[in-house]
Design a protein around this nucleic acid. Structure first.
Length: 423
DNA sequence: TCTCCGATTAGAC
DNA sequence: CTAACGGTCTAATCGGAGA
């Protein structure tokens, strides 16, 4: 009994961050545009025109400076509030198209379209709906497994005059072979730099070659992930759709500083900021953490200066998500790892061993009682009047460690005060 | 020798 | 003028400590 293959669709926004900026700057629709990472450091999104100029993904901005200046490239700092809001809009449109779905990242969603009638035109409809609702362009790849759907999406994006939909289930075996033999393995989901290098050494260069390699021996040499990838390339489902977003197991907040800091007071200020942020995220998912980690780092690229990257892991006797409790411990931890005389470039805070607040061990007998009501009030005020309305004493307004963001667009879709027309 | 656990590595986006 | 290289997260794997 040969069963009909599943139709798993991967819908992926085109050049997502750039597309978000273009929604509010239609004058840039045909121009080279890039979006930078935090601190305006690396290039993390490029328009097709920027890609065509040879501007590399992930490259540090200063290395691409020549290309950029010669071609009037428009540069944006990251505007995460804008991207998160646009993502919510895109996802709420797309979720209506299948009851079985998984939001995989800020700009991607898997939809199970198995058994649907006329899948190709359904996918075309969904693309147009997203454009109408949000002005963000998306492409759809359809295949029997997630890994193949990823590749199908790649094909949909790559084919210049394609309709933005590519369905591997419509192809003959011969056509599939042809497609896979033209895709280098580094473009496969789950095959990164290291695996590409070692697989190449064994003579495997294309998706077709990887698919046809013996699965069990490959598992021994290259690990389980490679084996699953091989099976998925054959059309065998090994990675199911995860329909519920599980609570975070780890919550991290870290920053590279705009310039180096030497004073512990500046680090304290930064750490308190990070603690507030992670504690809030933890409370938002109704969790508490059992381990609090603090780290500070010197600039790893300044090899001419002494390096010092200490960290400390602080176990909590009572799991907590309380900013005050965690803040005190964090500052003690910082004290114990800080050394004078270094130029610190980055710091961060990690919450781990996270469990659900209600079922946390010892909760009944030893709850974290340091002003839990204060946390609720603080969260409520910030919800009501906007983020940053009420902060703890040490979260000042001026920060020596603040990141550079020289080309940030307004939060068009979420903040009236930032709309030029409302000034 | 086995098992457990924290640290490290690899990958995604 | 010079210096300039992200932030969050998961899962697999490694390797040492202790049983």
């Amino acid at each position: 009994m040969s069963s009909v293959p599943r139709s798993i669709a991967l819908i992926d926004c085109n050049n997502f961050y750039v597309s978000c900026e273009r929604v509010f700057r239609p004058d840039l629709l045909t121009r080279p545009v890039i979006v930078l990472s935090g601190n305006d450091g690396c290039i993390i999104s490029r328009s097709n025109e920027a890609k065509a100029l040879g501007i590399r993904m992930g490259a540090p901005l200063f290395q691409m400076q020549e290309l950029i200046q010669g071609h009037d490239v428009t540069i944006f700092s990251s505007n995460h509030v804008l991207y998160a809001d646009m993502s919510n809009r895109v996802m709420s449109t797309l979720q209506k198209f299948s009851p079985v779905r998984e939001i995989y990242s800020i700009d991607e969603i898997f939809l199970d379209l198995s058994g649907f009638a006329d899948i190709n035109s359904y996918a075309a409809t969904l693309r147009h709906q997203v454009i109408r609702d949000t002005a963000i362009p998306v492409c759809a790849g359809i295949a029997p497994t997630k890994t193949l759907a990823k590749l199908a999406n790649l094909m949909a994006k790559r084919h210049p005059r394609s309709t933005g939909v590519f369905n591997l289930n419509n192809l003959t075996e011969k056509q599939i072979n042809s497609v896979l033999s033209h895709i280098p393995i580094n473009e496969i989901w789950g095959i990164g730099r290291q695996l590409t290098a070692s697989l190449n050494l064994s003579g495997i260069y294309t998706a077709a070659q990887l698919r046809d390699a013996p699965a069990s021996t490959m598992r021994q040499r290259f690990g389980v992930i490679t084996e699953k990838t091989i099976r998925e390339l054959r059309g065998e489902c090994c990675i199911e759709l995860g329909e519920t977003t599980p609570a975070r197991q780890q919550i991290l907040n870290s920053r590279s500083f705009g310039s180096t800091v030497t004073d512990i007071a500046d680090l304290q200020d930064a750490i308190i900021h990070f603690v507030s942020h992670v504690a809030k995220k933890c409370r938002d998912q109704h969790s508490v953490a059992s381990i609090l980690q603090i780290f500070i780092q010197t600039d790893r690229f300044r090899t001419d200066r002494p390096q010092y990257c200490p960290s400390i892991s602080i176990p909590l006797t009572t799991p907590s998500a309380n900013t005050i409790t965690l803040g005190k411990l964090a500052l003690q931890g910082l004290d114990s790892i800080y050394q004078t005389g270094y130029h610190y470039k980055r710091a961060g805070v990690i919450l781990s061993e996270i469990s659900h607040a209600a079922q946390s061990q010892g909760d009944l007998f030893a709850a974290d009682t340091s002003k839990p009501e204060l946390m609720k009030t603080l969260d409520a005020l910030n919800r009501r009047y906007g983020k940053g309305t009420v902060t703890l004493g040490q979260e000042g307004a001026q920060h020596a460690w603040q990141t550079r963001q020289e080309n940030k667009s307004p939060e068009y879709s979420t903040n009236w005060d930032q709309l030029p027309v409302c000034r």
